[in-house]
Simulated scan of single mutants.
Amino acid sequence: MIFRLGELFCGPGGLAYGAMNAQIENPNFRIVHQWANDYDGDTCETYRHNICPNHPETVYHADIRKFNLKGLPDIDALAFGFPCNDYSVVGEQKGMDGVYGPLYSYGVKVLNLYRPMWFLAENVGGLRNANDGKAFSKILLEMSEAGYTLTPHLYKFEQYGVPQARHRIIIVGIRNDLNVKYHVPSPEPYKDIDNTCKTAIEIPPIPADAFNNEATKQSPTVVKRLNYIKPGENAFTADIPEDLQLHINGAKISQIYKRLDPTKPAYTVTGSGGGGTHIYHWSEPRALTNRERARLQTFPDSYQFIGSKESVRKQIGMAVPCQGAQIIFEAILKSFAGIDYPFVEPNINE
């Protein structure tokens, strides 16, 4: 069975790449691109270039609040990583009261309009706590009322071989009239994978002419500061001379000038933030290149991001790790194909 996939808030294609590359024992079950939407122009160009270069017209560049959801080609599946800004632990956690909070509702509209057989929705772990947990409950209720059996789970992608500690709530919904049961895939098969950030970035070496691999020009002050910060430390935990210390009022975010620990997966790759938030190499006094950051998100080196350096940084940080997405999509395909696989009980708590 071939599932035609529609996507809202598609980003640069992390979910799509995972979906298109999902393979199971029965080759008749697979996922193909049908259409996608995102509000950011560069992001749409990246998606077109890598996911559907022969059908660029199937990617709609539009603000979802002004986008006509009716009249799109039929779909069998829907994926939407609805914007997380208002649910992020780092942000103000405005939840439903923020600009982005209610955007999940457009995914629910598509469910009601097109009745796909299944869907996958993704958001940050902070979604559970926004509006004292009421936002998450409301979202689950509306998805359920659209006619779907839900399996929400907090996926810790580093447990699935991804070289990055990235925790995301993913909700898989199967249409109620289908005799299909989805299970959360077990991380056990991936426990022996070497998913250290050092291995991800260095093996194999990144080609000298790789796309999106421009180095960041670090100021002499930043270079000096980084030389005092050991792997795994940040600007506040390291022993730094007074003249190089940061004097920031309020929260001291632990990722500020934090160097990677080469013996562990990377900390979470983010898409925005000012000085000190670009992820820093464990031994060289510099920020990672976008290509190195893309490797931590498990994009292949052949994946070309379109746009300025800062635009590409944002795209990479907002994406879902391709390999993590592929594992979940393969579990969905196996569920429909009636193929057993090791699974764990769903859990939304840390």
Rank of each mutant, 00 (worst) to 15 (best):
L333G: 10
A62F: 09
P204K: 00
E330H: 05
A22G: 02
R313C: 00
P27W: 01
L154C: 09
N212H: 03
N129R: 13
L140S: 06
M1Y: 11
P185L: 06
M143Y: 12
E57D: 15
F9V: 00
L150K: 08
D209I: 00
I229F: 06
V89A: 13
K217H: 15
V32G: 07
C322G: 03
G101I: 04
C322N: 09
I240F: 03
I174D: 08
P231M: 04
V32W: 00
P321S: 02
A62I: 07
L260D: 12
P346A: 11
L260V: 02
Y148E: 04
I174P: 03
N21R: 15
I31Y: 02
I24R: 06
E57C: 05
E345I: 10
G14W: 03
R313L: 05
G273H: 02
I206E: 00
S254E: 10
A210V: 09
N28K: 14
Y341H: 03
N85E: 11
S254V: 07
A130H: 04
K70V: 06
R291P: 10
A238V: 08
I193A: 03
T289D: 09
S308D: 05
A19N: 10
N129P: 00
Q23E: 14
S254Q: 09
G95W: 05
D63W: 12
D340M: 06
I75F: 08
P265L: 04
E25G: 01
I279D: 00
L103G: 05
P152L: 12
I51W: 06
G273N: 03
A79C: 14
E310I: 13
N54H: 11
A77P: 00
H61S: 04
P163C: 01
I170V: 14
K309Q: 11
S272M: 11
G13S: 11
L103I: 01
R30Y: 15
L5G: 03
V320D: 05
N290K: 02
Y182M: 09
T263K: 14
Y228Q: 11
V162Y: 01
R30L: 01
